[in-house]
Design a protein around this nucleic acid. Sequence first.
DNA 1: ATATCTGCAAAAGGTTTGCAGACCG
DNA 2: CGGTCTGCAAACCTTTTGCAGATAT
Lengths: 153, 153
Amino acid sequence: MDSTGPTNHAEAHVQEILSRLRDLGYRATPQRAAILRSLATSTHHPNVEQIYESVRADFPMTSLATVYKTLAILKELGAVRELSIAGESARYDCGGPDFHPHLICVECKKIVDLETSSAANSTCEDVAAQTGYQILGERHDYFGMCPECRQER
Amino acid sequence: MDSTGPTNHAEAHVQEILSRLRDLGYRATPQRAAILRSLATSTHHPNVEQIYESVRADFPMTSLATVYKTLAILKELGAVRELSIAGESARYDCGGPDFHPHLICVECKKIVDLETSSAANSTCEDVAAQTGYQILGERHDYFGMCPECRQER
DNA sequence: ATATCTGCAAAAGGTTTGCAGACCG
DNA sequence: CGGTCTGCAAACCTTTTGCAGATAT
């Protein structure tokens, strides 16, 4: 059986992306590893500041600029997705290229992933066929109030 | 029959929102009217700078701060929707509270509305039932390249 | 060994805010 | 008239950039 916890899944994912970086001529620095680790283990789609704080717990010398630069590379690789939200700094999503909708609490700003319910991928093809666009990506967010925040009213 | 063009539809919408503003104790200033008019007649979801330029064509004395302040009020009223997009300034959508997906060209940044295809509204209820969230809004964007931009390759 | 990466600090947007005077109702 | 709104300029925040020294390969 599988005696490894979720932490090891995350670590495996981190290692995979690190070696992908190396293959492309990028360097696998400890800062980058720490940033990836922070993303891989966080569940609520942190913003840059939160990633920065989390990384600094392990590497107090890490700078905000490095976090930004690393995220830019990871975005290009498709290893990380960026979510811009009105009135907030960007949030980051470590999922792979697979699409899923987000559920965003307007009160506590928590973001959780929704299970891909129905024929999500086929919709892209429908849109492409209808419009003549070449569809490259998709984003589907629901805004609401989570059960915890609702209770506090 | 209807001999009035689309311009008059837009103007009616502008007047309706202006009187809604008045009812709520806000003032219907010429700047606000011009901003609303710009939004109502523009088709590709302008950003603040574009609204500003368009308004200045009629009112050269209008300031950027006033555009921002007016948009903040209109957002609160629900008369305008704000679209944050990674690496860009916010875009504005004058539609009412009715939901529709967007199609965003990653090349020319044009945004067009998609016809609400299927059971869009029922999805919100599904999500609410599944998650216990109170759903307040939704956003669904497709990113791709429009036929015009594809041709230029 | 050397090209890439880091940290720092400054720059660069975009957006917000404070205030004195203008103006809607 | 009185309270709201405008324009200006400065402040603010997030993100980007340039550069000298450090480091992964």
